[in-house]
Computed example of a mutant assay.
Amino acid sequence: MKSNDACRLPWMPPPAVDVEALPAGKWWDSVRAAPLVGERALELLGDDTGAVIQDKYGTLYWFIEVGSAESWRLRQVRVLTELTDERTYLGVPPTSRTEGPGTHWRVPLSADHYLTDAFKLWEALAEADRAELGPVPQGRRTCYRCELPTDEPVIVDVQHGGSGAGRTIYACPRHTGTYQRDAVAEAAARRRALDQGRTR
């Protein structure tokens, strides 16, 4: 006998005892957000969120209508959909798995929580991106750590020079959390700037 949710929803995960890889772009597209941005977006959405999966790393996945997020460009956010030459899969847990550890439904799938409105999700993720990662630099930048160019640069430090503007340090999303500021160098730069101000 089917539950009320199963009768009212256009899609339900197939019965399974473990996480199952299902193709994006068939019933839904999925939006994947890194933990820092995803958590803030989930908070901003509140009751407007649809079902959300959380994997063992804390990454969050929303379901949206197929084709509704084709032009998105946000840091630490990816849209999983069917591509022309390949298929993308999402690990979907059984509907009964609503707690970790491991992949589980952070917001359980139900008639009230299925697809998230793509525009509202984009707004929440864009606000979360700005709040958690700061202003969006224009153009590609080189990551301080891996020394590779990134289209998703995050400003991790602005080093003030005693006589000039100093320099900005960028990181790719993967290395954003690994940068450690040099407190001694920062204090010395501030001191130089103060001394220069006094002597002008």
Rank of each mutant, 00 (worst) to 15 (best):
D129F: 03
D55H: 07
I64P: 01
G46Y: 06
T116G: 09
V184P: 11
A171K: 00
L42R: 01
P135L: 12
R174A: 07
R181M: 14
A187M: 12
C172Y: 01
Q76C: 12
W62K: 02
R167S: 13
R198L: 15
S96V: 09
H113I: 07
R75F: 04
C143D: 00
L22A: 02
L83D: 11
R40I: 11
L22C: 02
R8P: 02
R198Y: 14
L36N: 06
L60D: 01
Y61I: 08
V158P: 07
G139Q: 10
T95V: 11
R140Y: 09
H113N: 12
C7G: 05
P93D: 04
R78S: 15
H104D: 09
L42P: 00
E39S: 13
D29Q: 07
G100H: 08
L44Q: 10
A124D: 01
E39M: 10
Y144E: 07
P93C: 09
Y61S: 02
S163I: 15
E70F: 15
V79D: 03
P173L: 04
A128K: 01
V31D: 00
T178F: 09
V31F: 00
I64E: 01
W122L: 03
Y179F: 08
H104G: 07
Y57D: 11
V156P: 00
A171D: 06
D112Q: 12
G164K: 13
I169K: 09
V184C: 13
R97Y: 03
A118K: 13
L60A: 04
V37E: 00
E39P: 02
A189V: 11
G134W: 07
I155A: 08
G166P: 07
P93N: 10
A33Y: 00
D48K: 14
V19R: 01
R167I: 12
F119T: 15
R40C: 08
L133Q: 00
D157H: 08
